[in-house]
């Protein structure tokens, strides 16, 4: 199978969806003429023009709220936040308008919008630019939240997110944009991945590592070391989407291994892993042979200092230590 980057995979998804549906358009800061701050939308403005790829001024509340309004009329805006961290200045539009207009109208109005961009730490840009708000988005019933870890998942999930009739918060990662992975060739047909289906990225029998986004790669790295150095074999379950959540896949891996370490770039307090841990203790308590463990980002604002920031995020070393503590 051919190999492309996570960035190219997303670009392909936009290109295909823009061609498939005249209501789909991209909007965001620097997405058009500049080709995207991270080149995710490279070439699309040249190919599809001003109408379909729209440069917005720095005005997140304005253009995201505008896109929500346009989606109520049936358009399918794909909005780029240059960093997901900037959700804070558009929060009223995201939470109250995108998230709740369907409910408050008794189901009369839909909001088929995608809000996307990178949501990660690890690039030394300080606390204001390093938020991972998937947990915050997922607390709003009405919003959906997706966090792909690979190029294949990024493309398949993005195409589904654009076609979904509900608002989807799509969390990418600047540290993944350049990573290559196998992605089906468009010549082989339309490729989509449903939301709400987790993916078992590695099979093992001893411990379950459950993660999403780039933490999946950390879990996989830890799993290889645990296998090579300790003979411990891990299941690595990639949640892929946070809401809807593949509860069955979680319970299945827990039943299989009886030991769980959750790997999550969120801060521990009310992070996604807190919800997963609650779910496991409610529904799989009898399957467990050890307490559910978590590896999250260290509970402080994102630090700038490059070598320390590396340690603030989940690392394979911390995952390995947690696994060894419950074996």
């Amino acid at each position: 199978m051919r190999t492309i980057t996570y960035r190219q995979a997303l670009n392909e998804a936009f290109d295909e969806e823009i061609q498939r549906d005249p209501n789909v358009f991209l909007i965001g800061e620097e997405v058009a003429e500049y080709d995207g701050a991270y080149k995710v939308t490279q070439g699309l403005w040249k190919k599809h023009g001003d109408k379909r790829v729209v440069d917005s001024p720095i005005s997140e509340s304005g253009f995201i709220g505008m896109a929500v309004g346009a989606s109520m009329l049936g358009l399918r805006p794909v909005c780029e936040l240059m960093f997901w961290s900037f959700y804070t200045v558009a929060w009223d539009q995201i939470a109250n308008n995108a998230g709740m207009v369907r409910y408050m109208s008794g189901g009369l109005i839909n909001c088929p919008i995608v809000i996307r961009g990178p949501a990660n730490g690890g690039t030394n840009v300080g606390a204001t630019h390093s938020h991972t708000p998937e947990n915050i988005m997922a607390t709003i019933p009405g919003l959906k939240v997706v966090c792909p870890a690979t190029a294949r998942d990024a493309k398949g999930l993005m195409k589904t997110a654009i076609r979904d009739n509900d608002p989807v918060m799509f969390m990418e990662n600047t540290m993944l944009y350049g990573l290559e992975g196998e992605v089906p060739d468009p010549a082989d047909g339309d490729f989509t991945i449903p939301l709400g289906v987790a993916d078992l990225k590695r099979e093992g029998v001893d411990v379950s590592l459950i993660a999403h986004g780039r933490s999946v790669l950390i879990a996989l790295e830890a799993a290889e070391i645990l296998s090579a150095e300790h003979g411990i074999e891990c299941d690595v379950l990639d949640l892929r989407s946070i809401r809807p959540l593949d509860e069955e896949a979680i319970l299945e891996t827990v039943a299989k291994t009886s030991r769980v370490v959750l790997v999550d770039e969120n801060k521990p307090f009310c992070g996604v892993s807190a919800q997963i841990a609650a779910l496991i203790q409610e529904k799989a308590f009898d399957d467990l042979d050890a307490p559910v463990q978590r590896v999250c980002s260290i509970d402080a604002p994102a630090i700038y200092s490059p070598p320390v920031e590396k340690e603030q995020l989940p690392t394979a070393r911390r995952v390995i230590d947690k696994v060894l503590s419950i074996i």
Binding site: V68, D92, Q93, G106
Partner: peptide, 27 residues
């Protein structure tokens, strides 16, 4: 709300509807 009558609410947060109104025009 009554979208069948081109009426899009009814919004509780002061000023929060102003980008939505813009979005209708954009649409």
């Amino acid at each position: 709300f009554a979208p069948d009558k081109n009426y899009w609410g009814g919004h509780g947060i002061v000023g929060g509807q102003t980008p939505l109104g813009l979005g209708l025009a954009f649409g």
